[in-house]
C-alpha cells in the first residue's frame, strides 16, 4: 500500500516509540510525543504497538491512498475528513483506494497519530524509524513530510476488518468504520488548566520554599517557543537555586529543568541525552500523553506525587492498555 502527501501540514513526521540504546553516544531518543496514543492507534489496526506511524501536529496534511487501507487515528482531534465527511477517531477505519484523508482545524489537543496497517515502511536507523529532524535521522530522509512525498506501508499477513469493505458507506463515502470506539481518559484530557503530575527531582529540595509553592500553586502557560525538544513554561519566574548550572547528567522524557532565567522547561521527545540545568522534577510518565496534547497558550498546573504513586499509576495504565489490546484483538478476529 502506498499513499501520497498532497499537503504536508505544519509538522508531520514518522515516529515510533523511539531510539533507545544510543543515548550513551548522544543520540536523542525521539519517538512519539504522546506514546500512549501511538500505541493505541497501532493496536487498532493490528500492528505491533511500536510500529511507525505519522505524528501530525496542529494543522494537518492531506493524504491520498493509492490502495485500500486500514487506518486508525488517536490523540488530538484535527478534524479528519474524507469527501467532506468526518472520519471517526479511536477506531479502525477502512479507506477505499483513491480517497483523500484531509485534516482540518485542530479542535482538541495538538497531535494526532495516524497508524496504518502494516506500519510505515521507512528504513530503521540506529534501531528506530523515528524522525529526529535536528540531525536528519530516521523517518523519511530524516525530515518532516513535504508535499509530493510518497509513503509505503509494510505487509500485513491478511486483511483486518475486511468486512468493513461490505458496508454500504464504503463505496458511498470512501470509508467505513465500526460503531464502537476506544475510550481514553476523556475527562482528564479536556481539563483546563491541564493538571500535570510530577515527582520531585534531584534539585527540588534546593529550591526555596517560596519557589516550590509557586511551582505547584501557580498556573503556567505553554510558551510559543515550545517544540518536540522542550516545552517552555511561561508564568511566574521561579527563583533559582544558588547555582545556575549543575554538573551535566542524564535527563529523561519529562525532566523539568530550571534555567537561570527562572522559567522551567520540560524536556520532551527530542530532548538531549544530558543536561546541565538544575532538575526540579520529572513529569509522571502517565501524564506525558496529556502534556504532549497541549498547544502554545494552553494553561497547566503541576501537582506533586510520590515516585511509588507514579509507578503505580503507570502500572495501572499498562494494564488498561493490555486490556484495550485484548478487546481489539477479539474484534479483529471475531
Amino acid at each position: 500500500m502506498s499513499l501520497e502527501v498532497l499537503r504536508a501540514g505544519v509538522l508531520t513526521t514518522v515516529q515510533d516509540l523511539g531510539r533507545y540504546r544510543m543515548q550513551h553516544v548522544g543520540v536523542p531518543v525521539s519517538g512519539a510525543m504522546d506514546p500512549y496514543s501511538l500505541r493505541v492507534a497501532n493496536r487498532l489496526v493490528g500492528n505491533e504497538e511500536g510500529a511507525a506511524a505519522l505524528e501530525i501536529t496542529l494543522a494537518g496534511p492531506q493524504l491520498e491512498f493509492h490502495a485500500d487501507a486500514l487506518v486508525a487515528m488517536c490523540g488530538g482531534d484535527l478534524s479528519p475528513t474524507i469527501r467532506g465527511k468526518t472520519v471517526p477517531m479511536r477506531r479502525p477505519v477502512r479507506i477505499s483506494r483513491g480517497n483523500r484523508l484531509d485534516f482540518g482545524e485542530c479542535v482538541q489537543g495538538c497531535r494526532a497519530y495516524l497508524a496504518i496497517a502494516g506500519g510505515i515502511d521507512v528504513p530503521q536507523v540506529l534501531g528506530s524509524r523515528s524522525t529526529y529532524v535536528r540531525a536528519a535521522l530516521g523517518g523519511l530522509k530524516g525530515r518532516a513530510l513535504k508535499s509530493g512525498d510518497r509513503l509505503v506501508t509494510g505487509h500485513t499477513e491478511r486483511p483486518r476488518f475486511a468486512r468493513l469493505n461490505d458496508c454500504t458507506t464504503f463505496a458511498r463515502d470512501g470509508f467505513a468504520a465500526p460503531h464502537w470506539s476506544i475510550q481514553v481518559n476523556p475527562e482528564r484530557f479536556l481539563r483546563r488548566p491541564q493538571e500535570i503530575r510530577f515527582v520531585a527531582g534531584s534539585h527540588w529540595e534546593s529550591l526555596s520554599a517560596v519557589a516550590r509553592d509557586m511551582f505547584t500553586g501557580e498556573t503556567f502557560q505553554l510558551g510559543s517557543a515550545s517544540d518536540r525538544m522542550g516545552f517552555r513554561l511561561e508564568g511566574s519566574r521561579l527563583e533559582g537555586s544558588e547555582r545556575g548550572t549543575v554538573a551535566s547528567a542524564a535527563v529523561a522524557f519529562g525532566t523539568i529543568q530550571l534555567p537561570p532565567d527562572g522559567s522551567p522547561i520540560v524536556l520532551m521527545a527530542d530532548r538531549q541525552t544530558i543536561g546541565g540545568y538544575p532538575r526540579i522534577g520529572e513529569v509522571a510518565s502517565v501524564d506525558l500523553c496529556l502534556l504532549a496534547q497541549l498547544k502554545p497558550g494552553d494553561k497547566l498546573q503541576f501537582r506533586r506525587i510520590s515516585l511509588p504513586e507514579a509507578q503505580r499509576l503507570l502500572q495501572t495504565q499498562e494494564k488498561a492498555l493490555a486490556k484495550i489490546g485484548e478487546t481489539i484483538l477479539m474484534r479483529i478476529y471475531q
Binding site: V199, A252, L307, A310, L314
Partner: peptide, 8 residues
Amino acid sequence: PLGDRALL
C-alpha cells in the same frame, strides 16, 4: 530517581 523510568 530521575522520574519513574530512570535513575541516577
